[in-house]
Amino acid sequence: MKISRCRNCDAKFLVGRVFCPSCKSDAIEMIDLLEGKVIEIVSLVATPEPFPDNYSIAMIDANGIVLFARTDESLKKGDSVGITEDEFGPICNKI
């Protein structure tokens, strides 16, 4: 999946911004983020449209960047995961 990187100060952040939250530069580029470690995991049985009826969401630390991704696997804290995207958004799988 893609995240933002500031070309001026190298800050990386998930939610797209016009200006860097650290140095306020507008020189923002998109970079690939491919893996991370599970910080916390929550399984849901009441999910929003248009998502499936059951899944878990992992909170992931990817070199200091925190992000969320769906998974159908039984992950636990500390698991290393690969991050890709499906038609809805980010998903992760144990690696």
Partner: peptide, 30 residues
């Protein structure tokens, strides 16, 4: 339906986080 309501309320989240299937109840669980 609850699934529609959950979607409506989740519209307050940033798209990059909402696209992971987050709902407000799931944030409470975290």
């Amino acid at each position: 339906p609850t699934k529609r309501s959950t979607r409506i309320i989740a519209s307050l989240l940033q798209p990059e986080e909402r696209n992971a299937g987050l709902s407000l109840p799931s944030l409470g669980a975290f």
